[in-house]
Amino acid sequence: MGGNGKMTEKKGWKDLMRGADLPPASSLEYKTGSWRTLRPVWDPDKCTHCMFCVAYCPDMAIPIIKSEKGVKGFNGRIYKGTVRLESDFDFCKGCGICAVECPTHAIEMIREEETTSSE
């Protein structure tokens, strides 16, 4: 229980909600990214924006946008329409499914401690 910091005041048994019921909190407040030990490193230059990783990601941690202008990807081509962005590391749990599913091997899993980014 807890994890979103809301229960940290440690209520006594008389003040808790009945049973183990909890006030509503959406998963937006529950950042599962802290579990991650492996990190997907996405190489936009190899990406065809096929949306496989987006569909497979169990945590909806790969954001997408519509781009009329298009973005540069695999083979230097410009991909227009729906395109993916960098994974959202607040929620990416590092399961590696995206890396396995990517047809162009645009995603590589590396150990968190090897990452240079400050995420």
Partner: peptide
């Protein structure tokens, strides 16, 4: 009126429940 039922309760809350 959403709420959560049946969450994990570790040593900090199980006893109280």
């Amino acid at each position: 009126h959403p709420y959560t039922i049946g969450p994990l309760a570790l040593p900090d809350y199980y006893f109280e429940i």
